[in-house]
Simulated scan of single mutants.
Amino acid sequence: MQLTTTQFGARLPEWVADELAGVAAALPDAEDRMRLAHRLARRNHREGTGGPFAAVVSNAATGEILAAGVNLVLASGLSTMHAEVVALSLAQAGAGTWDLGGAGRPPAELAVNWRPCAMCYGAVLWSGITRLVIAGEGDEVEHLTGFDEGPMRPDWKEQLAARGVEVRTDVLRDEALATFREYGQRDDVIVYNGGGRGRSPAHVLQIQ
């Protein structure tokens, strides 16, 4: 037997570099790091490269930006290329290690414009970050966009805390909801849940 496919990968769209060009190398405030995630999330769906999600990895002590990622499922054709996975993978590639919390490394933070889905929850657990900052949690993202976030356990924050990951939530929550609402109201909205699971765009609810 000979495998026909032996590698895979994804690349950030060129517009991401343009978006980051005027951003300071370090953003000391969590709100500023979240604003960057919101900007990337909005532009990602407007550019048609993926869903309305973005993530930023930074030095938790100084705010130095280590990596930024956007959802690349549509651009890459890979279901695992969620914004958190992309950002964490880029940060790990840049650091040359799978463990962002390894010995001698500064504490790392992941800022995301909503609570991670079931898959990205696992990615956060194994990444080595010490802080997760999210715009919000709850099922609003599913109602507004139609995406299926998967079977998250109710004590997910406690589980992260038990593994040394601090969780901060409700950072610029309204901006996240505005982006999800904009996506859900598009005439050409694409909901790429595997096997057709999740709400169809026709049944997206309008949450105020």
Rank of each mutant, 00 (worst) to 15 (best):
A162Y: 04
A135W: 07
M152E: 07
S200W: 04
V141R: 12
L160N: 08
I190V: 15
G198D: 03
G136H: 14
S200R: 15
N193Q: 11
E137C: 06
G198T: 07
G138D: 06
L144M: 11
F180R: 02
D148N: 09
D174Q: 14
G138F: 08
G184T: 10
Y183W: 12
R186K: 09
V141E: 03
K157I: 13
E142D: 14
D139C: 05
T145K: 02
R153A: 15
Y192V: 14
R173D: 06
I190N: 01
M152Q: 12
R168P: 00
R173G: 04
S200T: 11
A162P: 01
R197Y: 10
L177N: 00
G198V: 08
R168I: 15
P151E: 04
E140V: 01
G138H: 06
V165T: 08
K157N: 04
L160P: 05
E149M: 14
T145G: 08
Q185D: 11
D174E: 15
L172S: 08
A176S: 15
R199W: 06
K157Y: 00
D170S: 11
E166N: 01
D148A: 09
D174V: 07
R186C: 04
D187H: 06
T179N: 14
Q159P: 00
E140K: 02
K157E: 12
Q185Y: 00
V171W: 04
G195V: 09
W156Q: 08
E166Q: 15
G198K: 12
Y183Q: 05
Q185H: 08
G194D: 11
V171L: 09
R181W: 00
G196Y: 12
F147L: 14
L160I: 03
D155Q: 11
A202D: 14
E140A: 15
N193V: 05
N193L: 10
E166Y: 00
E182T: 02
F147I: 14
Q159N: 10
E158K: 01
T145I: 02
E166L: 10
E158T: 02
R181V: 00
H143N: 04
D155W: 07
R153Y: 00
A176M: 04
G194P: 03
D155G: 14
A162H: 06
R173K: 13
R186N: 09
R168A: 12
V167I: 12
G164A: 09
R168F: 00
R153K: 13
D170C: 01
R163A: 13
F147M: 11
G138Y: 05
L144G: 03
H143Q: 13
V191T: 12
G198S: 10
L172A: 13
K157S: 05
M152G: 07
H143I: 00
E158D: 14
P151D: 08
V189C: 05
Y192G: 02
L160K: 06
I190M: 12
K157C: 10
R186L: 11
G136P: 09
E158V: 03
E175T: 07
E149A: 11
G184E: 10
G194M: 13
G146N: 05
E182Q: 10
P154A: 07
S200K: 15
R163T: 09
P151S: 04
G194F: 09
P151V: 05
G184D: 09
P151M: 02
G138E: 11
G195C: 07
R173L: 05
Y192F: 05
T169E: 14
